[in-house]
Structures are given as C-alpha cells and as structure tokens.
Amino acid sequence: MDATSHDQNLKVISISINGEVRQFDNSISVATLLEQMQLTGKRIALERNGEILPRGQFNQQLLADGDQLEIVVAVGGG
C-alpha cells in the first residue's frame, strides 16, 4: 500500500473494474476512483478482491496494482 516510499515517482497501476482493466495513478483512493467514474454518492456496492468494501472505508482505502473491483447496482429482476 505504501509503494511510494520506495519509488519517488508515481507509477501506473492496473486495476480490474467489473472485468475491465484500467490504469491509474498508484496513489488513488477508492473514493477518488469513484469520483473519476462519476459514481460518487450513487447507490452502489463495491467488492475488492472478493471482499465487501464498506462505504465508510472508501476514503482511506488505497488501490494496489492488480486489485480486482466489482461495482454493482440494483436492477429489475424476479
């Protein structure tokens, strides 16, 4: 999580979001990621590497290279 202590320069990391790989600045928090995706405040739930990430932790949690995120919403269903 603190890879920057070894590397002064920002390094690009790859994150899989709903199966689609995207590149980000390694210092990015989950909250910032959601902001970039225009999902701030939306009714979503998020799973990081198979574990639920509670909304209250979006600000603290920094993403790491290779993280797999699932972002879900409610849709119509029977």
Partner: peptide, 18 residues
Amino acid sequence: TIAIRRSNIGQNPNEPNL
C-alpha cells in the same frame, strides 16, 4: 424483488436508478 448486477462503467452516469 430486485437483482444485483455490475454497474455499466462509463455509460451515462446520470441514468435513473431502480
């Protein structure tokens, strides 16, 4: 009942939510 599905990343972030 409702279903849970992946959000459509990058598609119309302002579309109405169920």
